[in-house]
Each structure stands twice: as C-alpha cells, then as structure tokens.
C-alpha cells in the first residue's frame, strides 16, 4: 500500500543522505543542499511528480521535495504569466513550509530554554 511505498522511498532518500555524509564526507549543509538541488533537477526533468504519485509522503517529506516544490511553483506561474512567473512562483508552493518553520521556531525561542 501507499504506506509501504512511503516507508521504502523515504528510507532510500535518507540513505542517500547518509552516504553523502559518511562516504562523501560532506557537511550536513552540503548534503542537504545537494539533495534539494537534486529534487529541483528531477522535477525539471519531470521525474519527481511520478515519484510522489508512487510514494506519497515518502517523496514529499524529505528535503528533496522542497527543491521539487520550488521548481513546480515557478513552472506553474510561468505557464500562466510568462517569464516573470519564475520569480513570482518560486515560493508559492513552499510558502506553508517556510512560513511555519519561521513562525514556530520563533515561538519556540519565546517558550523554551536552551538545554546543555
């Protein structure tokens, strides 16, 4: 079922990240940046959406989907509004993610104390 697909595909993407960290000896920032760009490239080729169709959250939860969403939003806006759509559409889909990360992080800083 979709839960099995989500588990496996999500797991595989994380393993790719782990290999970049351990074997490639990249920093977490480098690793995540690589994954995001990969997601963007895959959507450019049109391969990421089918992966989402197959694996559901297994493809939308990893950070690669962030790259996919950026490209997707840009393409959708560009299709409707021409070249300027690239700029107006980039953050369209990812708006929920970025906004909530900023807002909740700020609230967390208001409420929680650093530990250790």
């Amino acid at each position: 079922m979709i839960f099995v697909n989500a588990f496996i595909v999500g797991g595989i993407i994380c393993v790719i990240g782990q290999v970049l960290l351990d074997v490639g000896k990249l920093t977490p920032a480098h690793t995540l940046s690589t994954l995001v760009v990969s997601g963007a490239v895959l959507d450019g080729i049109g391969l990421y959406e089918p992966l989402i169709d197959f694996a559901g959250a297994g493809a939308t939860v990893p950070i690669t989907s962030f790259g996919n969403a950026l490209v997707h939003g840009a393409i959708t806006e560009a299709e409707q509004n021409g070249w300027v759509g690239i700029l107006t559409g980039i953050f369209e889909v990812t708006s929920a993610g970025i906004s909530s990360a900023i807002i909740f992080s700020f609230i967390a800083a208001l409420l929680f104390k650093p530990k250790g």
Binding site: G10, Q18, L20, V61, P62, I63, S105, A108, A109
Partner: peptide, 28 residues
Amino acid sequence: AGAGSAVPVTGFANSMASAAIEHRTEGY
C-alpha cells in the same frame, strides 16, 4: 538517526528551532 532525522523536512525545522532557541540569550 543521522540522516534519518536530518533529511526529512523535520530536520530542516529542527535546525531552525534549535538555532533560534540556542541564541535566545543574545536577544530576539
């Protein structure tokens, strides 16, 4: 968990939240 917790979007949120909390003492 290594990459298992860093790669999902939860890791992204964790990095932002932990940085925000850690630097609380320096002001908002």
